[in-house]
Design a protein around this nucleic acid. Structure first.
Lengths: 332, 332
DNA sequence: ATGAAAGCGCTAACAA
DNA sequence: TTGTTAGCGCTTTCAT
C-alpha cells in the first residue's frame, strides 16, 4: 500500500505538504495541490488511519453501548446511529452491556484504550463515576434515553411524560373508562416519566385506584404476567397503557388467552414505536423519533469531538401517537 | 497514561524486555519478569493498541457485515458474534449493508484501511471479487449463512435442506394434507435449500401442485401477501411452511384476517427460530443454532487470524424442530 | 537473557 | 508557501 512518502516523492513535494493538503490546514499552492491530487488518484492512496491515530489524531471510531441488541428497541437505535456515523465516515463499535456494571466498566476501559473518539450510551446502569472517568480522558459522551441529573453530560430523551399523557388520553378518547397501566422499571428515568404521564390523566377518572398500576420490566413475559394480574384484580378494565411495546404485546397475549378481545373488550396501547408489524392486531403506540434521536446523538457527538460549541446539554424530542388496530373503535 | 517506557524505567530494564514480556515471546528472566509485573500492576499500565497496530501487529478488531440489523434475525447473529468476539478481547464493528453492493464495497475499503483483523459476512450480495480483494490484503473472512461455490472461503451454514424437510414432515405428521410453501428469495442459497427440502416431501403428497409455492422475500409483508395469494388459489390448504419466521408471522396475519384459525384450520411453521414470543399463537419453527454459528464463526476467524490450521472450510449445522402453538393439534 | 536502535505512517513545530 | 525533523508507543532485528 502506498504511503504518504510515496505520494510526496512522486508529486515532488515533501510529506509535510502532502499532510497539509490532506488535512486542509496550512498553506498549499495550487500547483502543489494539483500535483498531489493527481498522484493520490493514480496511486489510489488512502491515509493510514492507524498511523494518523498514533500521531495524535482521531480514530474515526465511535462506540454504542446498549443493554442488549436482542431487545428489539436497540436495533433501531443501532441502525440510526450507524447510519449517521457512516455519513461522517465514522465506524461504529457495538457493545452489549446486559446492564451489567462490570461489563460496562470493562468496555469503557477497552474503548479508552482503543481511543475511540466518542461514546453513545444507551445503557441504564451507567454510573456518574464512569462518566467522569471518560471526561477525564477527554472522551465525549452522549446519553440516550437516560439522564443523570447534576452532571454536565449531553443527554437526549423523548418527552416521555407527555407521551404517557398522550397514550392515556387516547384510550379515554376511544371510550375507555377504566384504564390500567403496566409500568416499566422504576429506576429508569424515561420509564418513570411515562408512568407520571399516565397518572396525571388517569387520576382524573373516578375509576382510578393505585392497584390499576402493575409493575413490570419492559419484557414481553413481564407484560404478560402483569396483565394476568390486572385482569384478576380488575376484570372490568377496558383500557391498558403499557410503558413499552414489548409489554403491550405480552398484555395482548394475556388478554386473548383470557378470552378478552382486543380492541373490542379491552384497548391496548404501547410506547416506543418499534417495528411490530407481525402482530395481529397491530399495536397502537406512542412512537419515539428513534431515528432522529440516533442521528442527533451522532451529530452532537461529532461536534463535541471537534470541539465545536453545542447549544444545549439536554434535548427533548416530541413523541407521536400512532393509532393502529389495538385501540380502534369497532363498528358493530 | 503510562507507556512502555515508563514501565521499563521503573522496572530497570529496557523497553525491548518489557515488550518481550508482554508478548510472551523471546527470553525474559524470572527476575525481570517479576519486576515488570509489579510495575505494570502499580502503574495500571495497558499497552497502547494503536501503537501496537502501527508496529505491525493486530488491531484486535473484527467486523460483522449484515444486511440490516433491523431485521430480527440479525440482532441474534450480532449478539452471538459480539459475545464470542468479546471473549477473545476483540472488539466488534457493525456494518449494515442493505444488500447494497456499493455500500458493501465502501465498507470493505474502510475496514481494510482500519486494518481490522478479520471480517464475518452475513450479507447475501457479496461478490467473489470482493472476497478475493480481501484475501489479497490477507484479511481473513468468514461467510455466514451463505456459500460461494468454488472459492476457498470458510462458510458456515445450517442444514437448510434438512430443515425444509423437517418442517414439511412435521406438518404432515400433524395431519396436514395440502401443504403450501412460502419461499424466500431464490438467489439466496439457504433459501433455495429450504424450498428444495419442502419439495422433496410435498411432492410425495397427491395434493401437490407447483402453485402451492408462493414466491416471496423474507419480510412480514411479503409473507402476508403470499398467504393471501395462496388462500385465493387453494382455499382448502391446511398447512403452510414459510421459509422464515417473519413470513410465517405475515402468513398467520393473513389467515386470521381471512377468518381462518391457526392452528385449527391451517397450521403454520416458520424457519430460523428468532425470538417471537410476542406472537399469539406462538409460531412453530425450525430453529437454526444461531448462537452456536456465531460463536463458531468467531472461533474459526480467530484461528485464521492467528494462522492456525482449520479443519474444514465448509461447516454445516443441524437444525431443530421447535413445536409451538401454530402447528399443535387441537383437542376439541 | 538483554539492550540499542531502526522503523511502522503520519502530524506538527519550526526553520527557511 | 515549503521542507526538515522530532515525535506518537510499540515491535523487532541485531549485537552483546
Amino acid at each position: 500500500m502506498p504511503t504518504i512518502k510515496d505520494v510526496s516523492k512522486l508529486a515532488g513535494v515533501s510529506v509535510a505538504t502532502v499532510s497539509r493538503y490532506l488535512n486542509k490546514n496550512g498553506y498549499v499552492s495550487q500547483q502543489a495541490a494539483d500535483a498531489i491530487a493527481e498522484v493520490i488518484d493514480k496511486l489510489n492512496y488512502k491515509p493510514n488511519n492507524i498511523a494518523r491515530s498514533l500521531a495524535g489524531m482521531k480514530t474515526a471510531t465511535i462506540a454504542l453501548m446498549v443493554p442488549d441488541i436482542l431487545n428489539p428497541f436497540f436495533p433501531e437505535v443501532a441502525r440510526a446511529t450507524e447510519d449517521a456515523a457512516n455519513a461522517y465516515d465514522y465506524t461504529l463499535i457495538l457493545c452489549n452491556t446486559d446492564n451489567n456494571p462490570e461489563k460496562e466498566q470493562k468496555y469503557i476501559e477497552t474503548l479508552i484504550h482503543k481511543q475511540v473518539d466518542g461514546i453513545i450510551i444507551s445503557s441504564y446502569t451507567i454510573k456518574p463515576e464512569q462518566l467522569e472517568h471518560l471526561q477525564k480522558r477527554k472522551i465525549p459522551v452522549i446519553l440516550m434515553d437516560n439522564h443523570l441529573s447534576g452532571s454536565s453530560i449531553v443527554s437526549l430523551m423523548s418527552n416521555n411524560f407527555n407521551g404517557g399523557k398522550l397514550a392515556t388520553e387516547h384510550l379515554q378518547n376511544q371510550g375507555c373508562r377504566k384504564i390500567a397501566h403496566i409500568c416499566g422499571p422504576i429506576h429508569i428515568t424515561s420509564s418513570r416519566e411515562r408512568t407520571n404521564g399516565y397518572e396525571v390523566i388517569a387520576k382524573q377518572l373516578d375509576s382510578f385506584t393505585p392497584s390499576l398500576i402493575a409493575y413490570s420490566d419492559f419484557t414481553v413475559k413481564g407484560g404478560y404476567r402483569a396483565m394476568q394480574e390486572l385482569i384478576q384484580k380488575h376484570p372490568d378494565l377496558d383500557g391498558v397503557f403499557a410503558s413499552n411495546d414489548l409489554m403491550a404485546a405480552g398484555a395482548i397475549k394475556a388478554l386473548q388467552e383470557a378470552n378478552l378481545s382486543v380492541p373490542t373488550d379491552v384497548k391496548v396501547i404501547g410506547f416506543d414505536g418499534i417495528q411490530m408489524e407481525m402482530m395481529s392486531p397491530e399495536i397502537s403506540t406512542v412512537a419515539q423519533p428513534i431515528y432522529e434521536i440516533g442521528k442527533t446523538a451522532v451529530d452532537t457527538l461529532v461536534k463535541l469531538i471537534n470541539g465545536d460549541p453545542i447549544e444545549t446539554y439536554t434535548q427533548t424530542f416530541e413523541v407521536e401517537l400512532q393509532v393502529k388496530q389495538s385501540t380502534s373503535i369497532q363498528s358493530k
